[in-house]
Simulated assay, not measured.
Amino acid sequence: MSDKFQGKYRIKSARLQNWDYSNNGLYFVTICTANRELYFGDIVNGEMQLSEIGRLANKFWKEIPNHFPFVELDEFVIMPNHVHGIIIINKPNDGGYNDKRNVETPNLGVSTITMASEKWNPGSLGVIINQYKRICTINARKIHTNFAWQSRFHDHIIRNDESLQRIRDYIINNALRWRDDKFCDE
């Protein structure tokens, strides 16, 4: 049965229900533009050519650690209608998950938070992505008034070095595989 919010059906969250997304760890995220509009540029000969809005998305992604000093960035790519990136949350003295490349999923039988509280938990992945999307939107709408993101984002908790390397390779080679990409609507 679907939940309703303000009289409308809502899709259940794709987030791992019993995971605190403010925990130290590596997170692979994908953020798409609304309706997969090609705001960020074009792929030419297997290389991404950033538009003005794409350059903004690139600039603001690189600035995330300036606003969240416990965040490190790994590989990322701006594509014509989405962004892929690895965000590393590395809070000192977090008390757990200090080996960021070998994250153990906690006991899934006990929930430490609810999804409503996680969304606004300071330092959580959701807050980081929300602020990134916010600053991009404010500035992109000065160029194209209809610019918008999809309301959600995709994430994957990276649990080991093998997964990390596979995701890095995917990000690095994403432009070469654009025509086969699930986010390509061309």
Rank of each mutant, 00 (worst) to 15 (best):
S2Y: 00
D3L: 07
Q6E: 10
R10W: 04
R10Q: 07
S13C: 04
R15G: 09
L16D: 04
L16A: 06
Q17A: 13
D20N: 10
D20H: 06
Y21S: 00
S22V: 01
S22N: 03
Y27A: 01
I31V: 06
I31S: 04
I31H: 05
A34L: 14
Y39E: 11
Y39Q: 05
F40N: 10
D42A: 13
D42I: 09
I43C: 04
V44C: 13
N45G: 10
E47D: 14
M48W: 05
Q49H: 15
L50E: 06
L50M: 08
I53K: 02
G54E: 07
K59Y: 12
K59W: 12
K62A: 10
E63H: 11
E63Y: 07
I64D: 02
I64P: 06
P65I: 02
P65H: 08
H67G: 09
H67Y: 14
V71M: 00
L73S: 02
L73I: 00
E75M: 03
F76R: 06
F76G: 00
F76D: 02
V77S: 06
V77P: 06
M79G: 02
H82Y: 03
V83M: 06
I86T: 01
I86S: 00
I87R: 01
I88L: 03
I89W: 03
I89F: 00
I89R: 02
P92Y: 10
G95Y: 05
G95I: 01
Y97G: 14
Y97Q: 14
D99C: 08
R101D: 09
N102T: 09
E104W: 12
T105K: 15
L108P: 12
T112G: 13
I113C: 11
I113Y: 09
M115N: 11
M115V: 11
M115G: 07
A116P: 00
K119E: 12
K119S: 05
S124D: 03
V127H: 05
I129K: 00
Q131S: 14
Y132L: 06
K133Q: 04
K133N: 04
R134V: 08
C136L: 11
C136W: 07
N139H: 15
A140C: 09
A140L: 04
R141Q: 08
R141K: 10
H144P: 02
T145C: 10
N146W: 09
N146V: 14
F147Y: 11
A148T: 09
W149S: 04
W149M: 07
Q150R: 11
Q150S: 08
S151A: 11
F153I: 04
F153T: 02
D155S: 02
H156W: 09
H156M: 08
S163I: 09
Q165L: 07
I167H: 01
Y170V: 02
Y170I: 08
L176Y: 15
R177V: 07
R177P: 06
R179E: 14
R179W: 15
D180N: 15
D180T: 11
D181C: 01
K182L: 13
F183S: 12
F183D: 15
C184N: 14
D185H: 15
